[in-house]
């Protein structure tokens, strides 16, 4: 059903996409869960048993006010307090590029979760490439709105980079969705030349057997 919708290029929001990928009734850990909007939707629409991790105090309080289980902590410190395979999904939504040790965090996600869902802005997007190539300046886009000096994004990557990382680290890509922002913040899926035409990559990954 979902695949069919994707094939039909139906416009979906970022959260819609993640929600569609998660199986009903599963156990979910959302890293960098923000104010808990995604987690709330997963609980309401997929009846998941969910827990969030967030470092910003105001966002943590917003989660608590929504009645969510949330842990105030730093993802970069790892998930040492979490047991192996204790979640069905560990989600890292639009945060990978902003963490200090993305390789370590992904390994940890795959240890703690049977699967991980990772999404990030694609630095290979043509508009990004063009700004660097033509203007010779650090790119600024809707997904990457910051200046070089104040950006929280310290580990920028492309869709192809992530694919390469997975193959090098024996990580299986279960599903890959490449997206590009349309009007009103809606996304559409990109099938042709995703590393060039998509501004966001979304992967469902698992540890290779």
């Amino acid at each position: 059903m979902i695949q069919k919708r994707l094939r039909e290029n139906i416009l979906l929001s970022d959260y819609d996409m993640v929600v569609s990928l998660v199986e009903t009734g599963s156990r979910v850990l959302d890293l960098g869960c923000g104010d808990g909007a995604l987690l709330s939707r997963l609980i309401a629409e997929k009846q998941v048993k969910g827990m969030g991790v967030e470092i910003q105090q105001d966002a943590v309080i917003a989660c608590i006010h929504k009645g969510l289980s949330v842990f105030q902590g730093d993802i970069d410190a790892g998930l040492a307090d979490y047991g192996n395979a204790s979640y069905d999904y560990v989600i890292l939504n639009q945060t990978l590029q902003a963490i200090h040790h993305p390789d370590f965090v992904i390994e940890e996600m795959l240890r703690v979760g049977r699967r991980a869902i990772v999404s990030f802005p694609n630095f290979g997007y043509w508009l990004v490439r063009a700004q660097l190539l033509v203007k010779g300046r650090m790119p600024q886009t809707v997904k990457l709105p910051f200046f070089w000096y104040n950006t929280p994004n310290i580990h920028l990557l492309t869709i192809r980079d992530f694919e390469g990382f997975c193959s090098k680290r024996s990580i299986t890509i279960l599903k890959q969705v490449s997206l590009c922002g349309g009007r009103q913040g809606r996304l559409k899926t990109i099938r042709l030349f995703p590393n060039l035409l998509a501004d966001e990559g979304l992967f469902v990954i698992t540890r290779s057997p």
Partner: peptide, 21 residues
């Protein structure tokens, strides 16, 4: 406190943790 939160979470208890600055 985190040790307690960990123990609660491992039981799937509905637990939240806030570290106030």
């Amino acid at each position: 406190s985190k040790e307690l939160v960990k123990a609660l979470r491992q039981n799937n208890a509905d637990v939240s943790y806030v570290e106030l600055d």
